[in-house]
Design a protein around this nucleic acid. Sequence first.
DNA 1: CGTCGGGTTGATAACTTTCAAATTTCGTGG
DNA 2: CCACGAAATTTGAAAGTTATCAACCCGACG
Lengths: 243, 243
Amino acid sequence: MNIAQSPLIRKLGNFVVLSDGDLKVLEGLHRRRRTFAAGRDLVHEGQVSAAAYILAEGWVCSYKLLRDGSRQIVDFQIPGDFLGLRSVLFRTADHNIEPVTEVEASEVQESDLLNAFNTTPRLATAVLWAASRDEAMVVEHLVSIGRRDALERTAHFLLELSARLILVGRGTRAGFACPLTQYHLADALGLSPVHVNRVLRELRECELLTFQKGQVIIHNFEALVDLAEFDHAYLDQDGPLLR
Amino acid sequence: MNIAQSPLIRKLGNFVVLSDGDLKVLEGLHRRRRTFAAGRDLVHEGQVSAAAYILAEGWVCSYKLLRDGSRQIVDFQIPGDFLGLRSVLFRTADHNIEPVTEVEASEVQESDLLNAFNTTPRLATAVLWAASRDEAMVVEHLVSIGRRDALERTAHFLLELSARLILVGRGTRAGFACPLTQYHLADALGLSPVHVNRVLRELRECELLTFQKGQVIIHNFEALVDLAEFDHAYLDQDGPLLR
DNA sequence: CGTCGGGTTGATAACTTTCAAATTTCGTGG
DNA sequence: CCACGAAATTTGAAAGTTATCAACCCGACG
């Protein structure tokens, strides 16, 4: 794959203008490509992990397991996202990571990462930015679960996914391919799978969006945004901020 | 106040051993002390803010407001915590900050902060650590709201507060002073104030803990930890990690 | 005193889960 | 290409948890 097509570059390009030098360094991080099978945990809680990953293809989710067997998915990562940045800096993973689909990712050693940051501060800024965006997403997720009802919450979640996918060229306002099951949605949204099903039906019947057969089709973007009180300021930049 | 008593230093000291040089730099950050009245927002969403703060005395909360007037408190900050680290790096606040009590805080300019980091990398590590811990707390909060029922959730929240307060010398395993109202709890836990009241009653009647008149008294620490599935690994270090 | 911000309680309503079962989809081997 | 079994989706009914509404109480404070 041409480096310029990489979803990471595409994403970072929304935040900062990357020089040829930046691109070269980024390319360097993309050696050591690895593939992971769906379903088999990539990282488990408590694991003393060595590497971070840049997701090139496929989806993963970060989650925590509770004693009673229920789980809470904290976040999904899609192409262009970092995996385990924090685990690298702090040596121990505080959550599990499961590939939702087969995944291709570049393994990044701690030293290479720090090196890249030292060489190209602009890159460091961009990555920090991305990390900060991820944090903002977790906060927004928290707000959703705490104060939005199931319908709003689901709509918000799918809109956020949509915005993120558009940013890496994997979706449009009309919809996107989505490998998640209703169980994934349930674990992410803090709902039961059965209720997720009903909510999806309602969204469909209101002609807001359809989620079927791995496809999300957005019928009425405006109405969804309004329903979910979705504010994409925290995801979308209106063009690069650093030039 | 003697600098050695500062809650920030006390907290960071749990993560890294601070040299005299580190302490000196930290002390430098503590000029420009300011006081804020309870209830009047310190930062509001969208504000283009300039400074971060180190909380010396009092509690604040970070929250988001929804259209229907409900709010979700994302986190509380207690003495020794940083305020608005992210807003400084990214220029715009994505949430509101309200003092729960009267607050004393040291204003820190972006430049001073970056300067301190450059001078004393160990300090930068410690602060990063603290920031990372905050992130882990938000994640744990998310899990609570998503997958724990009201009782477990409340217990977990109060245990976490307890652990944090102990770390800065403001509490013991037996309890702590807590200026929060039941409304604060409700907004943090994603519950209604009425239900919080009932939950607190139940915790009291089960002789687990009492929350009354601004005091949290922990009657049965073990049972609470078990009920809440509380794992303080993410808060407590078993002694400093960097020497 | 009267008001106001908390706290407390009961009754009812709303939302979501759980349980159970049927149906559809999808990957794999025949 | 079809059959089969497992996984995912769908639906109904009943139960459970939490929210809402409506009072009432109490102590602080002007």
